[in-house]
C-alpha cells in the first residue's frame, strides 16, 4: 500500500497540489463550500423533519437536493485533489474512513427520509416517529463528518510516505 501511495505522490497532479501556491488553497475553498452546501442542506432537511419550520411543506424540501448534489460534487472533486496531494496523510488514518462513513450514512438517511416521510407529508399525513429518529441520527452523522474532517489535520501519523 505504501508503494502505491508513494507512486501517487510522484504524479504530476500530486506534485502540482503540493508545490503550487494557489492549488492547495483553491481546493480547500471548494471543499469548504461543497461541504457547507452538502451538510447545510442535510441539516435543513433534518431540522424540518424534527419539526422546525413546520409551516413549510416537507416534500418541497426536495428543492434543496440539487444544492446538496452540487455540494457533494464540489466536495468530492476537491477532496480527490487534496487526497492526490497528500494520499498517505488521509489513507493511513482511520479518521478519514470514519469521516467518509458518517457522510455516506447521513446522506443515505436523508434519501430514506425522502422516500418515506416526504410522500406521507405530501398526502397530508403526520411525519412518523421513525423519520424523526432518522433525522436526529442524520444530524449527528453530519456533525461526525465535519468533526472527522477537522480531526484529519490533527490525527495523521504521516504527511508523506517519505516522512
Amino acid at each position: 500500500m505504501i508503494d502505491a501511495l508513494a507512486w501517487i505522490e510522484q504524479t504530476r497532479l500530486s506534485l502540482f497540489v503540493r508545490e503550487d501556491f494557489y492549488a492547495y488553497f483553491v481546493l480547500l475553498i471548494f471543499h469548504a463550500w461543497g461541504m457547507a452546501f452538502l451538510v447545510g442542506g442535510g441539516i435543513a432537511v433534518s431540522l424540518r423533519v424534527l419539526g422546525v419550520a413546520s409551516g413549510t411543506r416537507l416534500e418541497r424540501f426536495r428543492g434543496f437536493f440539487p444544492v446538496m448534489w452540487l455540494g457533494a460534487t464540489l466536495a468530492a472533486v476537491s477532496g480527490l485533489g487534496l487526497l492526490a496531494g497528500y494520499p498517505a496523510k488521509a489513507l493511513t488514518n482511520w479518521v478519514f474512513a470514519l469521516k467518509f462513513a458518517c457522510l455516506v450514512a447521513a446522506a443515505l438517511l436523508v434519501r430514506q427520509m425522502a422516500r418515506g416521510a416526504f410522500p406521507r407529508a405530501a398526502r397530508g399525513e403526520a411525519i412518523p416517529a421513525r423519520a424523526r429518529v432518522m433525522a436526529a441520527a442524520a444530524l449527528l452523522l453530519w456533525l461526525g463528518g465535519v468533526a472527522g474532517g477537522k480531526m484529519l489535520l490533527y490525527t495523521n501519523t504521516m504527511l508523506l510516505t517519505t516522512d
Binding site: A36, V146, K150
Partner: peptide
Amino acid sequence: WTIAEIVHFTGLCLLIGTVGMYDL
C-alpha cells in the same frame, strides 16, 4: 484547538444550512 475548529465549522454548516437555504 481541534474541538474549537470542529465547533467553528459546525457553526458554519448550520449557518449555510439555514440562512443559506433561506437565501436560495
